[in-house]
């Protein structure tokens, strides 16, 4: 059961709503529920996570029941149902990447960031988690950073250190 956190109501900007409309136009008029997954991605790109009020708003926009949105948002792994770090690092932890050292990268991140999987660093900048195969097995270990899903391949502990420094300096 998902907990209801204290959440302020959400108002979608007109730019966001314009994007919603564009996506909705891709499907037959009575099938606009098809827009649900892309819309949730847009919401997440905007707010960095998907809150219950945001889901309710999406339901309202698509004219479906809120439970239909919750069912979908909780089924798929990409939707963050609680706030993450500004940079959410996702490292592949599946077989082929483990053959070339993915587990080392994960434990290195844990040490480097000083938080456990799923937690956010005190400065709010980073969170990380292991995810399943990202379809880049030949270039492992790999990680991606949402919300842009920029991709980094052939990771080493050094390249991860550098990446984190770069991200810190970016702000």
């Amino acid at each position: 059961m998902l907990k209801v956190e204290e959440q302020t109501p959400v108002v979608f900007s007109s730019e966001l709503l314009a994007k919603f409309d564009d996506i909705k136009s891709r499907y037959p008029a009575d099938k606009s529920k098809s827009a649900l997954l892309p819309l949730l991605h847009l919401v997440q790109a905007e707010y960095l996570w998907v809150s219950t009020p945001a889901m309710d708003k999406v339901a309202e926009y698509l004219n479906i029941q809120p439970i239909e949105v919750y069912e979908v948002a909780t089924f798929y792994t990409m939707y963050f149902l609680k706030p993450q770090g500004k940079y959410a690092l996702e490292v592949c932890r599946t077989g082929p990447c483990c053959l070339v050292g993915a587990e080392k990268i994960l434990s290195h991140l844990e040490n480097k960031l000083g938080v456990k999987e799923g937690e956010v660093t005190a400065d709010g900048l980073f969170s990380f988690r292991g995810v399943e195969c990202l379809a880049a097995c030949g270039y492992g270990p790999v990680l991606q950073i949402s919300p842009e899903y920029t991709f980094y391949e052939n990771l080493t502990t050094e390249s991860v250190d550098k990446l984190i420094e770069d991200l810190k300096n970016k702000i």
């Binding site: 059961m1 998902l2 209801v4 219950t52 029941q65 809120p66 439970i67 239909e68 919750y70 069912e71 909780t74 089924f75």
Partner: peptide, 21 residues
């Protein structure tokens, strides 16, 4: 006539829920 009840999560974490009870 108005479904407020569904299945959340996936696999063996799936659960019947009305989300906000």
């Amino acid at each position: 006539n108005k479904r407020v009840h569904g299945i959340l999560n996936r696999g063996d974490h799936s659960e019947i829920s009305t989300y906000i009870q």
